[in-house]
Write a protein that binds this DNA or RNA. Sequence first.
DNA 1: ATACATACCTTGAAGTATGAGGTATAGTGG
DNA 2: CCACTATACCTCATACTTCAAGGTATGTAT
Lengths: 112, 112
Amino acid sequence: MGKTNPPFMTGVPELLVLRLLSQREMYGYELVKSVRVVTSEAISLGEGVIYPVLHGLEKAGALTAKRKPVNGRTRVYYSVTPVGRDRLERLSGEWDRISAGVDSALGEAGLA
Amino acid sequence: MGKTNPPFMTGVPELLVLRLLSQREMYGYELVKSVRVVTSEAISLGEGVIYPVLHGLEKAGALTAKRKPVNGRTRVYYSVTPVGRDRLERLSGEWDRISAGVDSALGEAGLA
DNA sequence: ATACATACCTTGAAGTATGAGGTATAGTGG
DNA sequence: CCACTATACCTCATACTTCAAGGTATGTAT
C-alpha cells in the first residue's frame, strides 16, 4: 500500500505549492507537472498530494480559487493571498534552518 | 498539546542518530545533547524522540546496544552495524536528493 | 532538605504523504 | 468507429513518526 510518511517530505509539498503560486497563478494539474520541472525531477508529487494541499491552504486563507472554463474543461486557478505569503516566508525560513542544521551535521567529516 | 508532525522533520532524527553513531558509540542522553551541538543549535531533539528512534533502529538490526555501569548509573551505548551503515548511506542520499530539489525550487527567482 | 543534572523509559495525540481508485471531456491513431 | 492517451478535477484509508508531558532513580551541590 505504499509508504505513507517518507523521510524528509513532511511540509515539502506545501512549501513548493506556495512557492510556485507566489510566482504566478496555476491550476492543480499544472502544479503536478511544474513541481517535477522546478526540482529537476528530484521531487514528484501525485495529484493525491497536490489537491488536498490546495484545499487545505484555501481553507486556511492562504490561497484563493478562481474557476475558469478552458476548452470545455474546467480549471481551478489558485493565487497566493497575503496570509499565504506570510506562510511561505515562515516555512521557507524553517526549511533553511533545518536544512542548514542537517547539512552541518552531515558535513562534520568529509565535505568536498 | 504541542505539534506532532512539524514540517521538514520527518526522518531527520533517524538520519542524525545514524550519522553521529557512525563516528563513535554514544548513549541516548549524550545524543540528545550532541544533536544540538552538531547542528549549531538549529535542531533540538527531546528524549521522547531519541529513545524510540534508538529502539527502532536496534530492532531493525541497524544498531547494537551495550550496557555499561558508570558511577552507579547505567548507560546504554549504541554502535552502528553494517546494516546501519547501509541505511545511513541510503538516507543520506535521499536527503541530498530532496534538499537539492527544494533548494532548486526556492532559488528559482532571487538567489543571492 | 532542596534542587538540579544525569540517565533511562512510555504514552497519547495528531498531522500528512502516498497509491489507488473514481468521474468526465478532448484529441489521436488505427 | 473504437481504443487509448492526455487533461482535469476529486476522495479515501493507511501508516508512520515527532512531540510534549510525565515517570523512575541515582549522584552532587547548596
